[in-house]
């Protein structure tokens, strides 16, 4: 995917004229990305890392990294942020979240930052159920429903989760440092699309045991809208079309609020409960035919 990207010579990020028309803010209140309009299209600025300039017509992307920006960071921004906003701008459906391939089909996980989306996908992989993606749920429509497309054979997660997935002991302070784990024999990656069976919205971790509560489509829609990528929040026709696609998703795919205790010792049980839930949904679907 990175081969679709034209990378220019590194340059410091000069102040841009005018205010951004949109921003992504982290839960800590920091600016993760700024969206600016330019005569030829758009510029997405990731402060301290890179500017991505998108041609408004062709949607071709060129990247201007800051000096010293690591290639892995550029690729992650491109694949996990820039491509999804361009995809949604073009009529595709990309959501922020993770997914894994289970025997009954794909389960996707969405939710607020630090709710455990990547760790859960990794825990599924550790249990032998390949992960499809760790940050961007790329949905390809098929004739009947939606397919989850494999994105990157890599998990980016905090050190304590990485240690758990590697079967290592957790070092003090590891929960503050993000690290990359490549797919492996022990953390398999799915290399083919998988039909989407359910989208789990991860709860805050208050439940004493895995808890599955269905969400009505009318409540699933505002929830999923928060986890979709939009390039131009002022482009009303595209926003309307985006809203329609998400509405269709909310009507056609079950959404379930999933909560469970955030303890590594509980994760294998959570994974089994998810596998059972997805299998039961498959049985219900088959039984209703």
């Amino acid at each position: 995917m990175i081969d679709q990207l034209e990378i220019w010579k590194a340059q410091e990020q000069a102040e841009l004229p005018g205010k951004p028309y949109d921003k992504w803010i982290t839960p800590a209140g920091e600016v993760a990305a700024e969206f600016h309009r330019e005569p030829e299209g758009y510029r997405i600025r990731f402060p301290g890392d890179a500017d991505f300039r998108i041609d408004g017509e062709s949607l071709a992307v060129r990247c201007q990294p800051v000096p010293g920006a690591e290639r892995d960071v550029i690729e992650t921004l491109f694949v996990n942020s820039v491509l999804p906003v361009i995809g949604n701008h073009s009529g595709q459906l990309n959501l922020h979240g993770s997914a894994c391939a289970l025997p009954g089909g794909a389960a996707a996980f969405i939710g607020q930052s630090r709710r455990g989306k990547t760790t859960l996908a990794g825990a599924c992989a550790r249990a032998g159920y390949p992960f499809l993606t760790e940050d961007v749920i790329r949905l390809g429509p098929n004739a009947l429903a939606y397919d989850v497309v494999p994105v990157r054979p890599c998990l980016r997660l905090f050190g304590d989760s990485a240690a758990y997935l590697r079967n290592e002991s957790v070092e003090p302070g590891a929960e503050t440092i993000k690290t990359s784990l490549a797919a492996s024999e022990h953390l398999p990656f799915a290399d083919t699309v998988s039909p989407l069976r359910v989208i789990y919205v991860l709860g805050p971790g208050n439940a004493p045991a895995p808890s599955f509560v269905p969400i009505d489509p009318q409540h699933a829609l505002p929830e999923v809208m928060q986890h979709a990528f939009v390039l131009d929040v002022e482009d009303k026709p595209r926003l309307q079309a985006h809203f329609e696609r998400l509405s269709d998703l909310a009507l056609n795919i079950p959404f379930v609020m999933l909560d469970y205790p955030r303890l590594f010792s509980e994760l294998s049980g959570v994974v089994q409960a998810i596998v059972d839930d997805v299998a039961e949904r498959g049985n219900r679907t088959n039984g209703s035919k």
Partner: peptide, 14 residues
């Protein structure tokens, strides 16, 4: 923008 979803009409103020 609006859409009927699950028996409700959901409105999004852009």
């Amino acid at each position: 923008v609006a859409r009927e979803v699950g028996g409700e009409t959901v409105l999004l103020d852009l």
